[in-house]
Simulated scan of single mutants.
Amino acid sequence: MTHHIDFELDRDYVELNQLLKLTGLCDSGGQGKMIVASGAVYVDGEQELRKTCKIHAGQRVQLDDIEIHVVAAE
């Protein structure tokens, strides 16, 4: 079963490793970088290996059975 997290983006973009930290999927940006480097993270269905890839509103990030929907802050 897939779990969904809505992440409200209050700036132009968030770096992928920071997104994992901000959503509570890891404890630190460094740990986020290791998770991305392992090949476990997908952005819009494509494997993403760039640790500081810029994630914008409207994109989806998947890690294992968790999908993060990045939405623009009101």
Rank of each mutant, 00 (worst) to 15 (best):
R60V: 09
Q31P: 04
T23V: 10
A37D: 12
Q31L: 12
H3M: 11
A40K: 10
D64R: 15
Q62V: 06
G29E: 01
Q62M: 09
R11P: 11
H69F: 06
I5D: 05
D10A: 15
D6I: 14
A72K: 14
R60M: 13
I66Y: 03
V70T: 00
L25D: 01
G29Y: 00
L25F: 01
E46N: 13
G32E: 04
V43S: 02
D65M: 10
D65N: 15
V14H: 00
D6F: 09
V61H: 01
E48Y: 05
Q59W: 02
H69D: 06
L49D: 07
D65W: 06
H4I: 11
I5K: 05
S28M: 09
E15C: 11
G30P: 09
D65P: 10
C53H: 12
N17V: 04
G58P: 07
H69V: 07
I5L: 12
M1G: 13
I35C: 05
D64N: 15
E8K: 13
V70G: 05
H56V: 15
K33Q: 13
S38K: 10
E67Q: 09
I66P: 02
L16Q: 01
I66G: 01
R60S: 12
I35V: 09
K33S: 11
M1Y: 05
M1P: 13
I68H: 00
R60L: 11
K33M: 10
D10Y: 04
E48M: 10
G58C: 10
S38W: 03
C53M: 14
Y13V: 07
H4W: 11
D12K: 14
V70P: 05
Q62T: 08
H56M: 12
V14R: 02
F7V: 03
Y13H: 15
R11N: 13
V14A: 04
K51D: 07
G39D: 03
I35H: 02
I35P: 04
E8D: 14
F7G: 02
E74C: 15
G29A: 02
S38Q: 08
V36K: 02
L19K: 02
A57F: 01
H3S: 14
K54P: 08
D44N: 13
D64K: 14
E74R: 13
Q47R: 15
I5S: 09
K54W: 03
G58N: 08
G30Q: 05
E8Q: 15
T23H: 04
L22E: 10
G58Y: 06
Q31S: 13
T52C: 11
K21S: 03
E67C: 09
L63I: 03
T23N: 05
D64P: 11
T52G: 15
H3G: 11
K54H: 12
L22A: 07
H4Q: 15
L16D: 03
D12F: 03
A37P: 11
S28C: 11
L9S: 09
G45K: 02
E74L: 15
A72M: 08
Y13L: 07
S28R: 07
T23Q: 03
Q18W: 06
E48D: 08
G32P: 04
Y42T: 12
G29D: 00
C53R: 12
D12M: 09
H69R: 12
V14N: 03
